[in-house]
Design a protein around this nucleic acid. Structure first.
Lengths: 121, 121
DNA sequence: GACATGTGTCAGCTTTTTCTTACACACCAC
DNA sequence: GTGGTGTGTAAGAAAAAGCTGACACATGTC
């Protein structure tokens, strides 16, 4: 399902940056034990709700968790989150493959290519 | 060889944080094509040497690359870097397992436990 | 000697990320 | 109505990461 087959550089980058944070790692771990809604999860892991909200957005943007807005029996809107079944392989080759398709921070790549172009052949 | 069998939370965290950066991803990719020494690598990927030095230290601290100080035939000291043969599996379960051993930012965990204790039963 | 190469590191600026506080809204129960 | 629950977001402070420039040292060549 997930990107075991060469994810985009930006894709992998987002995933690694998202998971490379103790809070977010813990959030994924907490959701791995079962889906939960924001306010409750915030209470359980002892984190301010706006902060958790931000981290969840980062995780969702990376495709590591999915959130669905549901209505409780009382009619209250509650946003439930659960982990996505991701599978990433982290090896030198995989990183190299992904890095080849890095787009965003092409700033220094441009710099490199300018040098490249300058020396011509 | 590497930590396919539940790396430490801090260990995995360092790896993910190190790889979750476009420059460092590119550095690993560049070294994957062959070992290289700092100044040359800096020139090739168009990055200032002090900056590359910093990134390499971060990667080395995470165990993703290894550097060895060698003496060229002329007697000049040159630091060669090469990628370490790391293998990490990135799945919800692996993250959850690693997160259980997270040590450093236990700050909010402490907070959570204080709340836990307060509400008692 | 001056100049090229290589190494490392430090001070300080800039940019990004993280986090808190405060606000907005909606629903249900009293 | 008030008070509890849930949602979202925006402004600004605080902290961390990224980056530059300048310095130090060593070696070999001209």
């Amino acid at each position: 399902m997930s990107a075991i087959e060469t994810p985009t550089g930006d894709d992998l980058l987002k995933v690694l940056a998202a998971l490379g944070n103790p809070h977010r790692m813990r959030i994924v771990a907490a959701l791995f034990e079962g889906r939960n809604y924001v306010s409750r999860l915030a209470r359980e892991i002892g984190m301010s709700r706006p902060l958790l909200h931000m981290h969840l957005q980062r995780l969702e943007a990376a495709g590591l968790v999915v959130g669905t807005l549901e209505l409780s029996d009382s009619g209250k809107a509650m946003k439930f989150f659960e982990v996505a079944p991701f599978v990433y392989e982290l090896t030198p080759a995989a990183v190299a493959r992904a890095a080849a398709t890095l787009s965003d921070s092409a700033a220094e790549e441009t710099t490199a290519e300018r040098r490249e172009g300058a020396k011509s052949t």
